[in-house]
Design a protein around this nucleic acid. Sequence first.
DNA 1: GCTTGCTTCTGTAGTGACTACAGGATGCAT
DNA 2: ATGCATCCTGTAGTCACTACAGAAGCAAGC
Lengths: 129, 129
Amino acid sequence: MIAIGEASRLSGVSIETIRYYEREGIISKAVRTASGRRAYSDTEISELRFIKRCRDLGFSIQDAVALRNLADAPSDACETVERLGSKHLSDVQAKLAELRKLEKALVELVANCAKGQSDCPMLDALKAR
Amino acid sequence: MIAIGEASRLSGVSIETIRYYEREGIISKAVRTASGRRAYSDTEISELRFIKRCRDLGFSIQDAVALRNLADAPSDACETVERLGSKHLSDVQAKLAELRKLEKALVELVANCAKGQSDCPMLDALKAR
DNA sequence: GCTTGCTTCTGTAGTGACTACAGGATGCAT
DNA sequence: ATGCATCCTGTAGTCACTACAGAAGCAAGC
């Protein structure tokens, strides 16, 4: 039986977040020891790790839960998984494109900022539409 | 005098968000007409646009406010502006690097998902640590 | 068996930056 | 006079946590 602190260390999910996941029904309620402390099994650690990995990949909690449910589901899971994955991939690619534009704009902005002048070209750039 | 709907259209900031900005003291309180409606001047539209542009560039509200205050400030503004800009640029670059890794992982994940199989390689990939 | 210090418990409130109502008043064109 | 768009205030919800407060349990050393 694994206590919550150890579960946190093993899964990489913080203690507060594990409790939050339980509260919200994202993971099932952990069994309690005689004194009321949460006790986890290896299976539950794996579940936490699965959720963590999905979150690290930028999936929403909702998607993470859907993927976890599919993980124990029957045949046609793979198609759904691929759909969620592709959708998320295109979201990520859109965000990448946006950030690249952003980076370019910021590089220009900062480059224009010649120090020591009384008027600031970067502020002017922000003011301009 | 410009009403809030028009101000929203002119600045690209939603009506709800303009009211939120006022409530939070991010912009100063708009003058009211006899009947209590908000009325904006060109200056205030510019202010909204300035904040909007900062937000679009990914600056926090806090940074946006700091930049706006600098925009009316004396000489040494430029240095501060450059500091904020550079800091933000490196944040953006870090996020870009993260997203690129993410994209790579997702591409692999989705590519591995050969449809129609009864076990799903993508789910296996998510399960593996 | 007592103290010390770490871990855990529940419950609540806060974060950032909005967004979404509900329920009512106002303005304008027909 | 009627209808519809626009606006008002105030409150609550979103997402995914994070941060307490205050109390209780546990393990080790003295």
